[in-house]
């Protein structure tokens, strides 16, 4: 019993270095995010790629629906009022569908199972 308590007390949970590590990661990533958010600019085109191959480049200004069919399956890319999103897809995880609409240069919506990349470019 006594031995067990001693054992419990021997390991501390958090060291100073742990906290510094946490702070450094949060600060660096936070600063980078703030920098990213303040420097983003509205994109003009949407590039749709499958793997490394560009299949279509569409203007972001014009509303339209574009169906991307790949060997793996299909995704429906929708451009609406200056933002692009993936409306539906038959991929297993549906992460691309849940992704928020994007409109800034460099932002991407990625469907990993279909190797689809929807990227906003200048």
């Amino acid at each position: 019993m006594c031995e067990q308590r001693e054992n419990v007390n021997r390991t501390r949970l958090v060291s100073r270095a742990d906290l510094i590590l946490l702070a450094v990661v949060l600060l660096l990533a936070g600063a980078a995010l703030v920098f990213y958010e303040t420097h983003k600019e509205q994109g003009k085109l949407v590039r749709i790629r499958v793997g490394s191959e560009t299949v279509e480049v569409l203007p972001l200004g014009k509303d339209r629906t574009y169906e991307v069919k790949t060997g793996e399956g299909s995704n429906t890319v929708v451009i609406k009022s200056g933002t692009v999103s993936v409306e539906s897809a038959d991929c297993p995880d549906k992460i691309c569908v849940r992704h928020k609409p994007v409109d800034s240069v460099g932002e991407t919506i990625i469907c990993l199972p279909h190797k689809l990349v929807v990227e906003v470019v200048e």
Partner: peptide
């Protein structure tokens, strides 16, 4: 796999979420 370099934004978000979930799981 996607030959896409523009993943900077994701890394920032994932670093923050990783740090927070790592803290909880670590404790």
């Amino acid at each position: 796999l996607l030959e896409n370099g523009s993943m900077f934004y994701y890394m920032c978000v994932l670093a923050i979420s990783g740090a927070v979930s790592g803290l909880l799981i670590g404790l």
